[in-house]
Design a protein around this nucleic acid. Structure first.
Length: 544
RNA sequence: GGCCUUGUGGUCAAGCGGUUAAGACGGCGCCCUCUCACGGCGCAAUCCCGGGUUCGAUUCCCGGCAAGGUCACCA
């Protein structure tokens, strides 16, 4: 077999000398220990919580080590392409403070460009041509039908499916047969001529999983599709070598194809990068765990969190607590330190898949939002409302001084006594709704109508908006006492049967009348913010 | 089904030959209190199963079992 002629026939034309690529894309001059990592999404534009999960790990390790993080676009599959997807990916990650040093649409250093795989077609072909010359790759003319028929036979025989060994029909085609197919104009793909022995197993050290058992690859995988575009496997090897990636952190769904990648790096004469296979985020469904899926879990898309108004910082904190088990403790100890100061360690990454826990995220969100100042909270709500708020909610921002008073109340005044009423921007906007327009009655009065009206009438008689908190509360107590309720909680507790109820029951009537709900922050302050006129009107309206 | 990975409370998990088996979220209870939230205190709840090795296994070995992943001209 004249491999040289075959290579020329299959991939005609002059391709750059492979050594020239080594010069064009030289090893990076980086400090010792620096890691070069990358994110390599396909351009669907869909960013998923799982992507963010891996992205944070890649970003932390690159930047913490003084290395680089770059963005490569895996657009080898045209079916997945969506316009504006790259910008969407960049924007989505930027929202979580993940910045690339170089890559598609980034600007920065373009030494290792192009960043779109479609634009790198010539490079892959040059390497593929070399493989053909060396007899390590060959054309395959099998049709999809033949391939699926083969798969059926293998399945029926309970054999391993795929293109390998005796099933690799085109592997041993004679030169004449190949030429005949070519002359007939049959489409073909280029396959790797695997030299692996599946009975050989070896230990590979994964940066996250530790030692894993790998079986040598013997699949003659497709490296160049019939349109001359590489498959993921081949592009991965060529790109990650030429872009000088040192550490590939990716989802564990890739672990199964590691043998292929290792053989590819070896046959291409590239040093292997380090790998870290990250567990995937799981979801509970029908009593069993399952990997988060783009198709089935639209609520796990990043845009969902944005829409709900989760603070990006909170989401990041949650991701980090799942990523590094000692992060949570560190963050609780030093809540004010920037996240970058946490020493992220790849060896602390979990080996098993974590279930996504909304309760935990909500708790973190509450805590992180409570650390914001009222001004910061206002800015955060405002930004959210601009795109996601209703017209009514947008109007909340027409009087920022007023809104600030509301936020100060709901967040607790400065320093120690912080409240944690807010989880997300969307929820917070609903929470403060009763300060704007008429309150919606969400909770029912627990006293009878007659008592309710008596409380309202009694309080309306003595209410003075100028009262300070103490005087105000004294009046609530006096109303309580006059209607047979205990003015002091301890009196009530000492002998509940002696009273109709306690001052808290009276306060509840007032609270529901003013806010529409049985639970709220300090009522006196609420009435202060609303002002005497509006407070009085609400009390009166409730009486009717 | 083959192969790979993983198996500590409901969830995330620390621990890696001897511990009363940390901590966080959630649940429950109490205190504080005009309600809620905050805060404080407390309670319930865990080492997948079976064999070894060992004076002693959650920790080591083997075998089960379970869960997840993967078996494309998709990434």
């Amino acid at each position: 077999m004249d491999y040289e002629a075959l290579a020329e026939r299959l991939l005609p034309g002059d391709y750059p000398d492979l050594a020239s690529y080594e010069e064009l894309y030289p090893p990076r001059a980086l400090p010792k220990g620096a890691q070069v990592t990358r994110l390599a999404p396909s351009p669907t534009g869909f960013i998923h919580l799982g992507n963010l999960f891996v992205a944070i790990a890649n970003e932390r390790i690159a930047h913490q080590s003084g290395g680089k993080l770059y963005l490569r676009i895996e657009d080898t599959d045209l079916k997945r392409k969506v316009d504006g997807a790259v910008e969407a990916v960049i924007a989505a990650l930027d929202y979580f403070d993940i910045r690339f040093d170089e890559g598609a649409q980034i600007g920065g250093d373009d030494t290792y460009a192009p960043w779109y795989q479609r634009q790198r077609a010539e490079i892959y072909r040059a390497y593929a041509k070399d493989l053909i010359r060396r007899g390590r790759a060959y054309p395959c003319f099998c049709t999809e039908e033949e391939l699926s028929a083969l798969r059926e036979v293998q399945t029926a025989n309970k054999e391993i499916t795929g293109y390998y060994g005796k099933y690799a029909r085109c592997r041993n085609l004679t030169e004449a047969e190949i030429l005949q197919n070519l002359d007939a104009g049959k489409p073909f793909v280029i396959r790797l001529r695997s030299m692996g022995d599946p009975s050989h197993k070896f230990i590979f050290r994964d940066e996250i999983k530790g030692e894993v058992t790998v079986t040598e690859n013997d699949q003659d995988v497709v490296i160049l599709k019939s349109d001359g575009i590489p498959t993921y496997h081949f592009a991965h090897a060529v790109d990650d070598h030429l872009m000088r990636t040192t550490l590939v952190i990716r989802g564990e769904e890739w672990l199964a194809s590691l043998p292929i990648h290792l053989e590819l790096f070896d046959v291409l004469g590239f040093p292997r990068p380090k790998y870290g296979h990250n567990c995937s985020l799981m979801k509970m469904e029908g009593g069993s765990k399952r990997k988060l899926s783009k198709r089935k879990d639209p609520e796990l898309s990043l845009s969902f969190y944005r829409q709900e108004g989760y603070h990006p910082f909170a989401v990041k904190v949650y991701m980090l607590t799942l990523l590094n088990s000692d992060f949570e403790e560190w963050h609780m100890k030093f809540p004010d330190k920037p996240l970058e100061e946490f020493k992220f360690r790849i060896e602390k990454m979990s080996r098993s898949g974590a279930l996504f826990d909304l309760d935990k995220l909500n708790d973190i969100s509450r805590t992180e939002l409570s650390r914001l100042s009222a001004e910061e909270m206002l800015a955060f709500l405002k930004e959210w409302a601009e795109t996601f708020g209703s017209d009514k909610e947008k109007a909340y921002f027409s009087d920022e001084a007023y809104l600030l008073k509301v936020l100060n109340l709901c967040m607790g005044t400065a320093g120690k006594k912080r409240r944690k009423d807010f989880v997300t921007a969307g929820q917070a906007m609903g929470e403060i709704g009763y300060f704007f327009g008429e309150p919606q009655q969400k909770d029912e009065y627990r006293v009878d109508n007659e008592t309710k009206n008596a409380v309202l009438a009694g309080f309306l008689d003595v209410y003075d908006e100028a009262d300070d908190a103490q005087a105000w509360f004294a009046k609530v107590k006096s109303v309580a006492a006059s209607l047979g309720f205990a003015a002091e909680m301890r009196d009530y507790k000492a002998d509940p049967s002696a009273y109709k109820g306690s001052v808290s029951d009276v306060a509840e009537v007032l609270r529901i009348a003013v806010t529409g709900r049985a639970n709220s922050p300090d009522l006196w302050t609420i009435m202060r913010i609303l002002g005497g006129e509006r407070s009085r009107a609400r009390l009166a309206a409730a009486k009717a």
